[in-house]
Amino acid sequence: MSEHPVLPPESTDNESVAARLAREAKRQVAQGNLKKKKLVYLELNGCSGNIISLLNGSNPDFEYMITSMVDLLYSNSLMAAEGEQAVQRLFDLAAGDEEFILAVEGAVALKNNGMYHLVGKIGDRPVTGLEMAELLGKKATHVISVGACSVDGGPSAARPNLSQSVGLQGVLDRHIIKLPGCPVNPDWFLGTLAHLLMFGEPKLDDMNRPLMFYSTLIHDRCPRRPFFDQGIFAEKLGEPYCLFKVGCRGPVTRTDCPTRKWNDHVNWPIGASTCIGCAQFGFPDRMAPFISYDTTKE
């Protein structure tokens, strides 16, 4: 036997890659090469959709994340502590020397000095999301913007934007890894986190999105693509042809949705309806209309 036996190529489908990453992480942790890092998951002005999506993750799943990948120090939806005790944890982090990765979901509301979105209270003093985003954002080793709202305002900043919401970058002058999507696919977040833990920052495109998840134009891998090439278009939803004429945003949106899919890799938006461009900057206002029957002729 030679020292480096030639092995058959490893499977490159999404689940195998995710499983291999998770297995490697586990091995590295067991060997002590890899120390568990701390994660703070801050929810700002949004709908908590990304955390719901995260709970739907598999290979690795959420349980694996909090037991084997990171110490989840704070997540207002999921932690046991509540009230002032929980908020105090954030201030301790901001004041102390602990290293942590900061994941931020939701937009930062600027109106009335941030009073349109509160994280909690210390005594009688309301603590705004704006204050926390700035405090923790400066301190974290890495910052990940999770979801459309955090990336560039998303639905929270959609017209008429009553809370004057902006993306995290709007209040934080530092390098941020951006994971657009409404919501973010659990694999995109967990994969980015795993990469951060094991190999450091993943390769990013010029808009700071990880290339491993956001490099493919949906249109290029769409199963309905042959219909586009032949000029065969659906006139209403439910027809199995290209949805370009009713408002599909696949041609302007970059994600691996066509191959990764959602809900344990079962189905995805174009499996049933149009892509609404939820992972593109400017969503939702600039992706409108999502559906239109008032179309061009072919």
């Binding site: 408002g247 302007v252 400017g282 992706m287 409108a288 179309t295 061009t296």
Partner: peptide, 14 residues
Amino acid sequence: VTNNAAWSVATHFG
């Protein structure tokens, strides 16, 4: 841009 992929339903980024 009638059949340009980036111009679905004759709109492009708003």
